[in-house]
Every structure is written in structure tokens, then in C-alpha cells.
Design a protein around this nucleic acid. Structure first.
Length: 174
DNA sequence: AAACGACACAACCGCAACGCG
DNA sequence: ACGCGTTGCGGTTGTGTCGTT
């Protein structure tokens, strides 16, 4: 089912002509360092945002979506690359217990980390846990989240704040 | 040394939300 | 109020690497 797609994705080194065959002239697949340089240079000059304009004016054969993703996940400054620290892992588990699959929100709580990174980490972790028959959330995390969600509920009932109601429902899962 | 599976990472797709004319 | 283009998010898939058999 996916063979054709696979071959088009691995066409990176065919360079600019990589996947230009279809009705669109936009390239797909892995980014080259040359493309990275063009995108970085463009954003330095014009700033972030307006991604379709990036596509039109940068000379890149990439759709705006792809440019945005590349910038957000790899090129923007202050990105933390490398493995998650134990502290970050702990934080992710807690955040997921509270928020569920709100990757972008979780990324906002972890400076320098991207939603994609967190999502990837979580998905492989989930797979591993499920295969091992282990609980997804450690007991101490369950407890801590439960406590903090109750506190926020109390606060919410006092201040009539919006609270994190779906978070509470998430905590019911375990 | 080769085959295989698990894992980590990168990127695409579809959809919903948003802003603007 | 509505349509349209743009953006952001979450899910999914593809690919490379590494360890195990």
C-alpha cells in the first residue's frame, strides 16, 4: 500500500527534482541542509509567520505547512535537542495525566521542546508500556495529579474559573 | 554476517479554528 | 453572516539505527 510513497520519500538526494512528478511542483520528504539554510535565511529577514508567503517568495519548493513544521521542530532558536532528562520525562508524564494528548500545550510547558518530540516520545513509551503490561502512569504520578486536580477544582469552585475539566476527566482514566 | 524487531525521529495528511474581507 | 485562505494541532506513516537472535 505504501511502497510508492516510501520511494518518493527516500528521494531526498535526487535533490530539487525529488518528487516533482505529480500535479504539484512541491517537494516532499526529508529536508536538505540547503533548504534549511534558505528557510533560516528567509525567516531571519522576514520573521516567522505567513508561511504561504514563505513558500511563494523564498524559492523553496515546499508548502507553507512543511516550512512551518521544519522551522518549529528543527530550525528555530532555543531548541533543546537530545534525549529528555529524567525531570522532563517526569514532567511529561504528569502533563499527560492532566492534559491527555494535548501535545502543543505540553510543549508550551517544556521550554525548547516541540510537540512532535513529545508526541513521539509518548507514543513509543505507550507502546513499550502496553507491550510490557505495565501501567502507563506510575502510581505516584496518579496521586499527584489527582491531588492537584482536586485543588484546582476547589479553586475553580471558589473563583468560578474555567478550570481544567477535561483534565479531570483524564485523571479518571487510571 | 545476515535477518529481524524495536525504537527514535522526521515528515505528511486531514481537520478544525481563526482571521479577514 | 458568510466564504475563503491561512495556521496550528493531533494522528499517522515512513525511514534510519541499533540491539538481539
Amino acid at each position: 500500500m505504501s511502497k510508492d510513497r516510501r520511494s518518493s520519500l527516500s528521494a531526498e538526494e535526487s535533490g530539487a527534482g525529488g518528487n516533482l512528478g505529480g500535479e504539484s511542483l512541491l517537494k516532499k520528504g526529508r529536508w536538505t541542509s540547503a533548504e534549511d539554510a534558505i528557510l533560516t535565511e528567509y525567516i531571519k529577514k522576514h520573521g516567522e509567520g505567513n508561511w504561504n508567503a514563505v513558500q511563494r517568495h523564498s524559492g523553496l519548493a515546499r508548502c507553507g505547512k512543511s516550512c512551518r513544521l521544519r522551522w518549529a521542530n528543527h530550525l528555530r532558536p532555543n531548541l533543546r535537542k537530545g534525549a529528555f532528562t529524567p525531570e522532563e520525562e517526569q514532567r511529561i508524564i504528569e502533563l499527560h495525566a492532566r492534559m491527555g494528548n494535548r501535545w502543543a500545550r505540553m510543549a508550551a510547558e517544556l521550554p525548547g521542546r516541540t510537540d512532535n518530540e513529545i508526541k513521539n516520545y509518548w507514543n513509543t513509551r505507550i507502546n513499550r508500556m502496553q507491550r510490557a503490561g505495565l501501567p502507563i502512569y506510575p502510581a505516584d504520578v496518579c496521586l499527584r495529579v489527582l491531588i492537584s486536580s482536586q485543588e484546582s477544582l476547589d479553586i475553580g469552585s471558589l473563583t468560578n474559573d474555567f478550570g481544567q475539566h477535561d483534565d479531570v476527566s483524564q485523571t479518571r482514566q487510571f
